[in-house]
Computed example of a mutant assay.
Amino acid sequence: MDELAQVGPRLRAARIAKGWTLERLARAASISASTLSRLESGKRQASLELLVPLTRQLGIAIEDLIVTTMADPRVRRQSWESDGMVVHPLSPETSPVSTYKVHYRPSPPVQELRSHDGYEWLYVLSGRMRLQLADREIVLYKGEAAEFDTHTPHALTALGPEDAEVISIFNEAGARFHTQAP
């Protein structure tokens, strides 16, 4: 198992980081120094019976010793169009914070502002955005950011004359309300 290949070297690194000798850790974990040496060098198979007392003494978790294969970090999700905007997901579906690049076509101000659970942050990449926030209308230009509690009635539209793009970050409730894919 490749996951276990680094248990010994990681165990050695944890021991050295603590400034302990082989003998000191072996004595504290009630195993022989030769067993610990063989474990650290990969000449002895790691077992829970050996690792539990060693990790307990070192103040680390067994998971700290196991190499996990890193998943592909690229986000590969389909974009979609909805209500005059094109939504490009930039974070995995399982992320606790949802990030999107949203392309807006110019449109008139929204007549009926909406509020919902959640929180929103946005950054204007290009164009001009109209942020209607309660009784205020705020114009956001390229390079500007805004954040607000989505309990405040709000709407976001491109002011024009050109299209606009923003990076939007939502907590789970905000993402559910604003970016429902078809």
Rank of each mutant, 00 (worst) to 15 (best):
66 I>F: 09
176 R>L: 15
79 S>Y: 13
141 Y>F: 06
45 Q>M: 03
9 P>H: 05
50 L>S: 15
169 I>Q: 12
168 S>K: 03
93 E>N: 10
166 V>C: 14
79 S>W: 07
136 R>I: 00
30 S>F: 14
129 M>N: 10
99 T>S: 07
68 T>M: 14
88 H>A: 02
163 D>E: 15
73 P>G: 04
119 Y>V: 09
110 V>D: 12
17 A>C: 01
24 R>T: 11
142 K>H: 02
91 S>L: 03
76 R>S: 11
169 I>V: 14
52 V>N: 07
74 R>H: 08
171 N>K: 05
117 D>G: 12
33 A>I: 02
94 T>H: 11
94 T>P: 10
67 V>E: 13
138 I>S: 08
129 M>T: 06
20 W>Q: 09
16 I>F: 14
9 P>F: 03
94 T>L: 05
135 D>W: 10
77 R>M: 06
177 F>D: 12
15 R>L: 12
79 S>G: 03
106 P>L: 02
74 R>L: 11
51 L>M: 01
15 R>W: 10
36 L>G: 05
166 V>Y: 06
153 P>T: 01
100 Y>W: 05
80 W>S: 01
46 A>S: 15
173 A>E: 13
138 I>C: 05
24 R>E: 15
61 A>R: 05
21 T>E: 06
83 D>R: 00
71 A>Q: 12
125 L>T: 02
31 I>D: 15
86 V>C: 13
151 H>S: 13
131 L>H: 05
139 V>A: 15
157 T>M: 06
176 R>I: 03
63 E>R: 01
37 S>G: 05
120 E>N: 05
149 D>S: 11
80 W>N: 02
60 I>G: 10
107 S>Y: 08
36 L>N: 07
13 A>W: 14
158 A>S: 12
14 A>W: 02
130 R>H: 10
84 G>K: 01
79 S>Q: 14
12 R>N: 08
2 D>G: 12
28 A>D: 15
20 W>E: 09
166 V>M: 13
121 W>K: 04
68 T>A: 13
35 T>V: 13
31 I>P: 15
82 S>H: 15
157 T>H: 10
99 T>Q: 03
174 G>T: 13
1 M>F: 04
134 A>L: 03
149 D>P: 12
165 E>Q: 09
8 G>C: 11
57 Q>M: 09
167 I>S: 06
78 Q>I: 08
146 A>T: 06
76 R>I: 11
105 R>S: 13
104 Y>M: 07
8 G>T: 02
117 D>T: 07
127 G>I: 00
23 E>V: 06
75 V>W: 04
83 D>I: 00
30 S>A: 06
160 G>K: 11
171 N>G: 14
84 G>A: 02
38 R>T: 10
21 T>Q: 04
3 E>T: 00
34 S>C: 09
